[in-house]
Amino acid sequence: MPPVAPRPGDAIFASVERVNAELFTLTYGAIVRQLLTDLEEVEEVNKQLDQMGYNIGVRLVDEFLAKSNVSRCVDFKETAEVIAKVGFKMFLGVTASVSNWDAEGTACSIILEDNPLVDFVELPDTCQGLYYCNILSGVIRGALEMVSMKTEVTWLRDMLRGDDAFELQVKLLKQVPEEYPYKDDE
């Protein structure tokens, strides 16, 4: 039997259960607001959002692999493309693009021009230093760690800070070789 072809992101998005994006956006906003009240320090809020994203990414990768039929990516370049074209589309319904590769092919930018997390969001001056969408960087880091890639994800551009797009730099730190729990002869 031929291998099952990977499914394009929009086909998956069309087939999954979906909810009103407003509900999602408002819920995320309410979380950020509550964390700002509770944690007081913007830096702590950034950390907490990243951690929540990481936990989500760890879970989300299973759903991603199950629904997308994506097979093993040959290299980090392909991985980044798959995240941008399939991952973002099937969960958030938007497409991201990949650019700014470094010479070694271990760092790139994922660029998002349309981001449902920030619909109707404006940051007050007191939130300088807040990475409002930090949950996204956590999700990418968490998901990639589950497929043996240690990464560092940082924001280079942020529309809430006046930039013209969201740009996440994803840097591959280490590809952890897969360890099998058993040896053949045991």
Binding site: V16, V19, F24, T27, L60, G93, D119
Partner: peptide, 10 residues
């Protein structure tokens, strides 16, 4: 129909 995201996001 307004904008939607996947249910698993929520």
């Amino acid at each position: 129909m307004g904008r939607e995201v996947s249910e698993s996001c929520l």
